[in-house]
Design a protein around this nucleic acid. Structure first.
Length: 131
DNA sequence: GTGATGACGATAT
DNA sequence: TATATCGCCATCA
């Protein structure tokens, strides 16, 4: 089989499923969602998926997905206001406090149950002034 | 099948 | 830390 048996539409569905796992008051980056979905999924694909779901937006917390800089990539959708209503704090520069509201990722049990990939976190001591 | 686009990420300066 | 440039992959024309 050169081509994969799964439907192309399921590729986006997979992304929506992961995004729905983001709890209230938490935010995740496009890269994080892509990493969990795996299968070569990238941050750009996640952005397109969220913009192409249409009616699915009513059930998918797309507003909790922001770029790696903690800024809002969208405009005219009041995404920042929604996040503030969710309890997410923003910096004076318009950047969300990723250090406080960054989603730790889904439970490994959930990930394994759905056949997804764990969230590969970067080494924490790399930016800590461990002296 | 090729080229261009896009709700991005990482690295370099 | 912010800006600039390249790279990444899927979808559309």
């Amino acid at each position: 089989m050169s081509t994969q048996p799964r439907d192309e539409h399921e590729y986006y569905e997979r992304i929506y499923t992961v995004v729905e796992q983001v709890p209230l008051g938490k935010v995740a980056t496009y890269g994080d969602i892509a990493a969990i979905v795996g299968d070569g999924c990238d941050a750009r694909v996640v952005g397109h998926a969220l913009g192409s779901m249409g009616a699915r937006a009513a059930t998918v917390p797309w507003q909790r997905i922001i770029n790696r800089t903690g800024g809002i990539s969208t405009s005219g959708h009041g995404q920042r206001e929604i996040l503030e209503a969710e309890g997410v704090s923003f910096d004076e520069k318009g950047h969300a406090r990723m250090d406080t509201h960054h989603w730790s990722g889904p439970s490994e049990d959930w990930v394994r149950a759905h056949g997804f990939q764990p969230l590969p976190r970067k080494p924490p001591q790399a930016q800590l002034t461990l002296f």
